[in-house]
Design a protein around this nucleic acid. Structure first.
Length: 829
RNA sequence: GCUCCAGUGGCGGAAUCGGUAGACGCGUUGGACUUAAAAUCCAAUCGGGGUUCACCCUCGGUGCCAGUUCAAGUCUGGCCUGGAGCACCA
């Protein structure tokens, strides 16, 4: 065995060996239980960054560990390859997006292989390939049939310079990420998925996700934004038969209404405006339209509004109050109209103060009543000025008052969600075409399933400005109607890339199927994903959409489970010098350089070493070198032993062992147990790695204490310890472990070995350290035999010189014994 | 403003159940080997104080203030700071 560790040589050799022998291919059929380990698939941007390295290393170690534990592990990889960067590259350099994407995939695949990741490449999926997007389109049609895909007029983020809509993520501080011009709101007819139909299920099923962090679950719950309240309908005094409905979470304050606000875009606003107020209202609405979303939603902006001139009547007390329009009412939420109770709502209060609208207190803290002249009272209290409800607690009044409205026929209980339907249309070329045609006779017609995929045209001009390149195709637009056969035009929009990524994990179960999106039996076998690993930035969008897709496809009968991801690990960011690695800051580290200088095993070891996976990880060059040195240290230990014939393949431990040998064997067993527990318990790889080091140090110490040539027992113990170390390290330092394994004389791959099993009776030290406390403070420690009873411990503690001295002349009140650990003597005086 | 997460040496972090705070590493300092350097190895490394001074003793210490307990980094209540997400959502 070579004395020096040459990672580059070893790593290349084993990577090609594994590929040749299909070590990581996963059969569908196996006697072993299944385990699906999944990393969030990357966008092929060009090169891997350290965030990718961290993500994929974490999942890879999990996959290898589970495989060694006897699971049939599915560990696939793919490419989220539709999206804007490819199209932008095309616009900038005249490159073909498909070619640009393919080249990036090829390069990044090479990098992934250099990292030694155990993927089953037979199951690779690429969302921009027709064999994948055919099924994205097919799934769109299934949702359409179910009424879950529909078209409507909606406001979108519009960049006039680029002539296209932008995703919310592409709007940075209200400006286009590419050309920096201000983003406007525009009304366009767009395709939506009816995710709101699933709002309650998406919220409720969060409770089932024990394997998800609370942070992600609460983020989703907030996003869904369930609230419970009431709808009240108010008659308009000036217009016979007209009503304005409002949604409120504070029905208890209904007697305190002093005005009502409708959104500037409210559908009946023109009818509700008197001729005298028409000009002012029109002007206000025109201004609101011009305003950007950011301006309008800024919370510190002074609230503005104008009166409409009409009034409503409060059915609870007969009071009249004026109608206003103000942009703090949002047309998309609730009914688009707000009943304003300035005394008990801070926004209404600000508005009322500015326009001198009246205040009427209806909730009070009986101990400390407020007139609400300076600030709204939003806490709980008791009703006043509320007729028969006076004296009732406001929490109870919510129900009683709503019930009165229900009985009177002017209101009802209402549950409201903040979640909006998912806008999936993009006026973009590089995406999956929406498989729909427009026929003058038949209207909106879905494409026939046998005509899928609707192929992306290639005869497009990317240099066009102000419209989607797809519209320049001569061959794409005109088609025939699937129903009547007459002339028709294709939908020119493509789907949001989040649609493609909402089902890719299902496709891995049956990636090569050309007849179906996936076989039902296979998808039910492999899914849900046992462990999903990825960045926290996907906490809402991707994970919520995927959950929605799973539920919708379940309702389409395509699969039989409710939730796609059983366990979720959101890994922290990779930082350098305390801030996120980014090109603009110039603090990036190129994975290629690390592979070249230290090897992939060092990179893998280091990226797992210093922080637990969920926390941010601070990259340091010294840390990398430290890991490299550690691998050299392990290599030297074993190569030295192998070359001196002290370590052999066929070792046997014959008990009882000498004291020193027994101690080392115990340390090995303790390490096996500890490492297994650390991985099983939230994947604490940082402590796993510290245990590798402890074990290595212990073996070195033991070896240093052996004098002269090793005897047989020592050789066996040395072989056991080093072979165990290398097996424990094999999921992390995959190439080095394999090389050493073969140097030891084994012929199979270490990655197909069984995980270490420890002997419970040996997984503890032969001596324990007894801690003796007096009044909870440590006063003495001593070594005692492992088998002592509690009574023995007590007697030992009380008879030590030191304790006698401390307790002399004092009354011992009681003695607490923690078995095999500690004695606490409580004294008085 | 609301929600969630976090706060431990010079630094990253460790500490299943409440039971030895600071594992392991980085850095630093000293030493060995060497003509020298690199590499490697050994030792020290929370703070204050004491001392019969290289062996100990003692006090304090896990963001802050209380509480529960024989015992609190860990549990409870109230704050402070930092991070993340949401936000005129009625």
């Amino acid at each position: 065995m070579k004395e020096a560790y040459f990672p580059q040589e070893i790593e290349k050799k084993w990577q090609s060996e594994w590929e040749k022998n299909n070590v990581f291919q996963t059969p569908d059929n196996s006697d072993k239980p299944k385990y699906f380990a999944l990393s969030m698939f990357p966008y092929p941007s060009g090169k891997l960054h350290m965030g990718h390295v961290r993500n994929y290393t974490i999942t890879d170690v999990i996959a290898r560990f589970k495989k060694m534990q006897g699971y049939n592990v599915l560990h696939p990889m793919g490419w989220d390859s539709f999206g804007l960067p490819a199209e932008n590259a095309a616009m900038k350099h005249g490159a073909d997006p498909a070619k640009w994407t393919d080249e990036n995939i090829a390069y990044m695949t090479k990098q992934l292989k250099m990292l030694g990741l155990s993927y089953d490449w037979q199951r690779e999926v690429t969302t921009c390939k027709p064999d994948y997007y055919k099924w994205t389109q097919w799934l769109f049609l299934q949702l359409y049939k179910k009424g879950l895909a529909y078209k409507k007029e909606a406001a979108v983020n519009w960049c006039e310079t680029c002539g296209t809509v932008l995703a919310n993520e592409q709007v940075i501080d209200g400006k286009c990420w590419r050309c920096d011009s201000v983003v406007e709101k525009k009304y366009l007819s767009q395709w939506f998925f009816k995710i709101t139909d699933y709002a309650e299920q998406l919220l409720k099923d969060l409770d089932k996700l024990d394997g998800w962090g609370d942070n992600v679950k609460t983020m989703q719950a907030n996003w869904i934004g369930k609230s419970q309240g009431a709808i009240f309908r108010f008659k308009v005094k000036e217009i016979e038969g007209m009503e304005v409905p409002v949604y409120t979470t504070r029905p208890d304050t209904v007697h305190g209404i002093t005005y009502l606000v409708v959104a500037p875009e409210y559908k009946d606003i023109e009818k509700l405006t008197t001729p005298e107020n028409k000009n002012a209202v029109e002007e206000y609405r025109a201004n609101a339209r011009k305003m950007t979303e950011i301006e309008r939603l800024s919370t510190d902006r002074v609230k503005t509004g104008v009166p409409l001139g009409t009034h409503c009547i409060n059915p609870f007390n007969g009071e009249e109050f004026p109608l206003w329009t103000a942009d703090y009412a949002l047309v998309e939420y609730g009914t688009g109209a707000v009943m304003a109770v300035p005394t008990h709502d801070t926004r209404d209060f600000d508005f009322a103060k500015k326009y001198n609208l009246p205040l009427k207190v209806v909730i009070q803290d009986p101990q400390n009543p407020s007139d609400c002249k300076d600030v709204a009272y939003t806490e709980e209290g008791v009703l006043v000025n509320s007729n028969e409800f006076n004296g009732m607690k406001n929490t109870e009044a919510k129900k009683a008052i709503t019930q009165k409205a229900v009985d009177g026929g002017f209101g009802e209980f209402k549950t409201q969600y903040r979640l909006r339907d998912w806008l999936i249309s993009r006026q973009r070329y590089w995406g999956a075409p929406i498989p729909v045609v427009y026929c003058d006779k038949c209207g909106i017609v879905p494409e026939k399933e046998e005509n899928l995929p609707v192929m992306l045209p290639t005869d497009v001009d990317f240099s066009v400005v102000g419209k989607s390149p797809i519209t320049t195709s001569k061959t794409f637009k005109d088609t025939t109607c699937p129903v009547c056969g007459g002339p028709a035009t294709r939908e020119m929009d493509t789907m949001d890339t989040f649609v493609c990524s909402s089902w890719y994990y299902l496709r891995y179960s049956d990636a090569k199927n050309s007849e179906k999106c996936f076989d039902k039996e296979k998808v039910n076998h492999w899914l849900p994903v046992d462990q999903y690993v990825g960045g926290i930035e996907h906490a809402i969008l991707h994970l919520l959409y995927s959950r929605f897709f799973t539920k919708a496809l379940r309702d389409c009968g395509l699969l039989d489970f409710d939730e796609p991801f059983k366990n979720l690990l959101t890994q922290g960011m990779v930082l350098k010098d305390g801030s996120k690695m980014s090109k603009s800051k110039g603090n990036t580290v190129d994975p290629d350089e690390i592979f070249e200088n230290f090897g992939a095993d060092t990179a893998r070891l280091f990226i797992l070493s210093d922080s637990p996976p969920a926390r941010d990880f601070d990259w340091s060059d010294a840390g990398v070198e430290g890991c490299y040195k550690f691998l050299n240290r392990v290599w030297r230990l074993i190569s030295d032993g192998v070359n001196k014939r002290e370590i052999a393949k066929d070792y046997k431990l014959a008990f009882p062992l000498s004291r020193e040998n027994d101690d080392l064997v115990r340390i090995v067993n303790i390490a096996m147990k500890g490492i297994t527990n650390d991985i099983s318990n939230d994947f604490q790889f940082n402590t796993v790695i510290s245990k590798y080091r402890e074990l290595t140090n212990a073996i070195y110490d033991w070896r240093g204490k052996c004098k002269g040539e090793l005897d047989n027992e020592q050789k066996n113990v040395f072989s056991f310890a080093t072979t165990s170390l290398i097996k424990l390290m094999s999921p992390v330092t995959v190439h080095m472990a394999e090389e050493i394994w073969h140097e030891l004389g084994y012929k199979n791959s270490i990655h197909e070995e069984k995980w270490c099993e420890w002997d419970e009776s040996l997984a503890k030290a032969s001596k324990i350290t007894l801690v003796i406390q007096v009044n909870g403070k440590v006063k003495d420690k001593l070594e005692v035999d492992e088998g002592v009873t509690d009574e023995d411990l007590k007697q030992i503690a009380l008879s030590t010189e030191k304790i006698k001295e401390i307790t002399s002349g004092k009354e011992i009140v009681k003695t607490i014994v923690v078995p095999k650990k500690l004695v606490n003597i409580v004294v008085k005086g």
